[in-house]
Amino acid sequence: MEISMILIPAAILAALGAAFGILLAIASRAFAVKVDERVPLVRDALPGANCGGCGYSGCDALATAIVEGKAPCGACPVGGDPVAQQIGAIMGVSVEKKQRMRAQVMCSGGDSHATKKYVYQGASDCLAAARLAGGDKLCPFGCIGLGTCASACPFDAIHIENGVAAIDYRKCEGCGTCVAVCPKQLIRLIPYDSAHWVGCMSKEKGGTVTKQCKVGCIGCTMCQKVCEAGAITVNSFLAQIDYNKCVDCGKCVDKCPRHIIWSAERQEGGLFIHR
């Protein structure tokens, strides 16, 4: 066996590889696309979760939009203020301080509290259940509890507990994905450190609410009267807190006869709920 039988094929393959290598090297120069050097910097500053909370398809798309001036530096709802400041530094502009938000499910009517009008046995999805007479709970405003928000959450921060979506405050980044998918519009973004919220969205009259749910807001206005900061208003039989005015005194919590004003304390990143 001659040595050339090995050398010739090896040489041809090596030549083929070298030819492709040179061709690709030339092509990479000839076809080089100029990318703004700030795009990778901005992308690295973003959280990288690709959650889509900003309205763009991912962190890369948002980075491109920010550099092109199509999106503000603070467009990322997840990164909040630190990321906005970092991007502002890269872009060379000053950014206003931005408040960090978290999601909150405004319903307390779990399986043991809310009355059901029928037994739902369809697809395990709130959007499907909402089409069947607005879900299985008698209350037309209540949480359906089939977890459409839980499967949409890019941070795995929502779980269904006792028939109502519950948010894991350690994981929630306030991207707002769940707010958009909830067919009942039950989830709201409230300031990250706010300690009180009204766990009900029912706009029914008091008498109707008591028939539908053991823990619904009846619109008695007792919280409105007790609030010294004037942060609570009752509109169409539903109390709502204005977080610009709320001073977290907690007086409304004790006064509420239905116990639906929740209070919580932030400790070591988690939120400890007193009920």
């Binding site: 061709l23 690709l24 092509a27 000839a30 076809f31 080089a32 696309v33």
Partner: peptide
Amino acid sequence: QFIEMFLRKF
């Protein structure tokens, strides 16, 4: 690789 570069440019 070549197609990728070509498409990106043109």
